[in-house]
């Protein structure tokens, strides 16, 4: 990075750290913050959409749809996250490849499952094994978003289901008395009013989601905790120009500050949203 970095062993402390903090490895660490923030920015609305769909399905008058909604909520909430992340993602990936295999290689005669191995034809690989590494990383990221959205969507569905039911029934009855159809009453009366009831639950989910990002490494996405551990680990002089002892404590302290600052900002924003949504509502938070 800097010109004086060519011989790190001869540098004074200040310059040594300037060089140390700008190595290629550290730049990957800084990029992983971007990865995590982008993941949160995409996952949160997607999970909310999954949750909204799940809650609507669970309240549906159509029985199979209702069973699907309730089944989704209870099954996904009941499975431990780590099991979900380890097994479901591999299953999801293999599901995609199986579909592509059926479409692209109808002449294939070998078994797809051979013992422990999962073999599809080269054209069906997701992504193609010839694809550059960044395509693999984007695909892993996409799988991560989808998995997070499904898991957190189930929790959000439960929160929204409760929130929809918390809107006073008299409001909906009044709307229907004015001649609105159930669909109109749902979109015009229930949905705008339910958010204030949903917000405490959703804000909890958001906090949990922020802290769940280390699960990313199980999916092959190198997140901030992975890099903190990797960078903090002891480095011997033989293997690096910047040898140091076990500095993981300092890196994790830095992450602690980052997470606390991030959740603090989130709390402030959520508090403002609560005030905004409470206007004119018959709840304690209303002004």
């Amino acid at each position: 990075m800097f010109e004086f970095c060519s011989d790190p062993a001869a540098l004074d402390t200040m310059r040594w750290f300037a060089c140390f903090f700008t190595t290629g490895k550290h730049q990957l660490f800084y990029w992983s913050f971007v990865t995590v923030l982008v993941l949160l920015a995409i996952t949160a609305p997607t999970a909310l959409a999954f949750g909204f769909g799940g809650a609507m399905a669970a309240r549906s008058p159509v029985a199979p749809l209702r069973w699907f909604g309730k089944g989704y909520i209870s099954v996904v909430r009941g499975v431990p996250d780590i099991a979900f992340f380890l097994f479901f993602v591999i299953a999801l990936d293999q599901g995609f490849e199986w579909l592509r295999h059926q479409a692209f290689c109808p002449d294939w005669t070998d078994a797809i499952r051979q013992g422990n191995d999962f073999i599809v034809c080269a054209e069906a690989k997701m992504p193609l094994s010839t694809a550059p590494q960044w395509v693999h990383e984007v695909y892993g990221f996409f799988l991560a978003v989808l998995t997070f959205a499904i898991v957190f969507g189930a929790f959000a569905a439960n929160v929204l289901y409760g929130a929809m039911n918390a809107v006073p029934l008299g409001q909906v009855e009044a709307a229907e008395a004015y001649g609105m159809t159930p669909r109109q009453a749902f979109w015009r009366i229930t949905v705008p009013q339910m958010w204030v009831y949903a917000l405490p639950g959703l804000s909890n989910l958001w906090m949990v989601l922020i802290k769940a990002t280390p699960l990313l490494f199980l999916l092959g996405v190198e997140d901030i905790v992975y890099w903190a551990r990797e960078l903090g680990a002891t480095v011997l002089p033989r293997f690096s120009d910047y040898p140091h002892g076990d500095w993981r404590l300092y890196y994790f302290l830095f992450l602690l500050v980052f997470y606390l600052a991030f959740t603090r900002v989130s709390e402030k924003v959520l508090a403002r949203i609560t005030v905004r949504l409470s206007r004119g509502q018959a709840t304690l938070g209303a002004t």
Partner: peptide, 13 residues
């Protein structure tokens, strides 16, 4: 990538 000298990440990652 975490088992020097067998395999590890260098300064450039």
């Amino acid at each position: 990538g975490a088992y020097a000298p067998w395999n590890f990440l260098d300064d450039n990652g």
